[in-house]
Write a protein that binds this DNA or RNA. Structure first.
Lengths: 204, 204, 204, 204
DNA sequence: GATGAATGAGACTTCATTCAT
DNA sequence: CATGAATGAAGTCTCATTCAT
């Protein structure tokens, strides 16, 4: 019985893995359930046993990806003390992950949009979660008097957007330079924007 | 003859107007040529007389929209002297336009993505053009010693991304607050990020 | 599993049978996949599950028909000794088959043409195979000194063409007389053309 | 007034000329009225002023082509005395014309088929006319005791078919050898088939 | 649990034909 | 006479989803 459950979970994951590869290659509407089934080494019927429809696959994949990224960020920021450095680390983690997994970045930043109203809600939620991750650190920073009193909701959103745009540009350009280089130029801008002394190096 | 040409041009525009409405409602792949034809008050064949295919409609619409926005920005910034204020005005114009035409914003910021690799090239180009619009002002500002020496390519991209994210959030949220309010909070951040004295009010 | 496969094969054949009827009725471009699906008692999607596109259906049908005819000819000529009589038998078989299945003849002789360059290659091949079937017998006949030394490639092609034209006329005329009658008049001409004594009856 | 009539006739011919080029390139169903209009340097409406529909264009073209070929044959055979040589000359003329105008041959032998029942009637008629042209000479030859008593209807049809097949093969092969060479090999066969002494040279 | 054949709605696109100018 | 914009029916093909085995 337990064996069967484990097997089912395994299948579930295999399908999600396949979906990640397929959705990274083609946009939501261009990806077909057949492709996912093939890539997962199962049949169309098999996919439909584990997921009620195509949308559910995409949403589950989005959640799983967000969850993993969140965990990565949390473990990366755990060891850091300074709240501004924490926020910095969070952004750097996002960027570093995308730099390593370009397909994943495409899925997360580009594909999730433009696929019908239903997805937007979820996409907005996830983006909000990441912004919140940054926001909480900025709030602490203000409380500790490290930075000036700013609208941290807007600030974190702006930060996320700035990083987002840099990543997107990197995604859409044909022969991109290393993503990390861009962050080195971006970082002082972000720091200054919240009123940190420009020269202060707050890297962990 | 001239009458016919004029009528054709009129029809051409009507189709583009219709396409704008339809693409604002549904993503590229979800929008059908039938819908566009209906909305334009013509037949499917009529649409195909004016455009070779669906993609061409979308691209033409994208170009027209970008062109209009660019003109608006240029005329808005023409009267402004200070380069930093020029950049500020440019962003404010983008934001203001989107605030008034929510559907247009959706088209421009969200729909253009996630519709197949072919679109990305053009989308990237257009985004680049807008970033360049800001970049040139920042370059002047540096030359005039108004702001610190920064990587203006990255800075303009970051600014655009920050605004972008704020707009997108506004687009995806169900009951959004006025977009302009957000900009008031965002503006000091942007200013500070490029090394302008925080207190300096550079509004035109 | 085996049951499903058998059913699939059955459906495959049913579609081909339906296609034969439809293509016999209308030319390639005038025949629609919808008609084939209806005639096969299935859906459009069902047809496309078994064949990648319309062209493949036609080509498969052409191949099947040619294959069947070839087998018939081979089994008919197997029992015949004299090579000239063999060639004669081959032609008579073609003619007899067409006489019984008028629609099939139409498909084979008329429809295959005029449907785009892609088909010509295959059509030419098949025609060539049938001419070759005759040619080999004529070659043997020459080797045995039964007929004069002629260009057997041209001769077999000419024979095939002569029969072809007689069949086509029969196909295109509204109230045709029995096709076999025509062959009785045609046969001596063909015999004489290769230098066989006119009076010699070489019927098997 | 007369000028207008002449101009109309001129247009009519230009359209037919254009149609000949277009139908030589593509099969009937693949050729569009737009292409014909473009090629004729006029508009779609212009074409429809001169012809009621697409089918009429094709039929008119077929008739004109047949008429021209018939005239060529008649003037070629006029100078020849011997009836067998006349028949030979007729076939040679057909073959020579096709050899020079490959596109025309395609139109006449291949395209005319496979384009719906309506065309078959006319095609059959035209083929019959050409066979009749040969038949009449063979009839005279029999009356003069030059050849054996054969079914000249079948014989002429067989001859036409034999030539037809040789031409068709030449049309469908990618790198064909000169068509006339084939006729040199074909001619003795045809001669012998009607009982002419093989050695007798009846060339005009 | 899994398979894959089958469905059927719907997508894009083409084009013969009409008709106001 | 000629133009070319417009129509609308029809065609090929795709694919999410279902279901008998």
């Amino acid at each position: 019985m337990a064996v069967q459950q484990a097997r089912a979970q395994h299948r579930h994951r295999r399908i999600l893995d396949a979906a990640q590869r397929v959705f990274s290659r083609s946009a939501y509407r261009d990806a077909s359930v057949d492709q996912i089934a093939d890539e997962a080494g199962t049949s169309k019927g098999g996919v439909y046993f584990h997921f009620p429809n195509k949308e559910a696959i995409f949403l589950a994949l989005l959640d799983r990806t967000a969850e993993r990224l969140r965990k990565k960020i949390e473990s990366a920021t755990a060891a850091v003390e300074d709240p501004v450095a924490k926020a910095d680390t969070a952004l750097r983690t996002v960027l570093g992950t995308f730099a390593k997994h370009r397909a994943l970045a495409r899925l997360f930043m580009v594909e999730a949009l433009g696929a019908g109203r239903e997805f937007h809600q979820r996409t907005a939620e996830i983006r909000g979660q990441f912004a919140a991750l940054i926001e909480q650190h900025l709030d602490v920073a203000i409380a500790q008097g490290l930075i000036s009193e700013i609208d941290t909701t807007i600030a974190s959103r702006a930060w996320f957007g700035a990083v987002n745009e840099v990543v997107t540009h990197w995604l859409l350009s044909d022969r991109p330079r290393p993503l990390e280089d861009s962050y080195d130029a971006l970082r002082p801008l972000l720091m200054r924007s919240i009123g940190t002394a420009a020269g202060t190096d707050r890297r962990p």
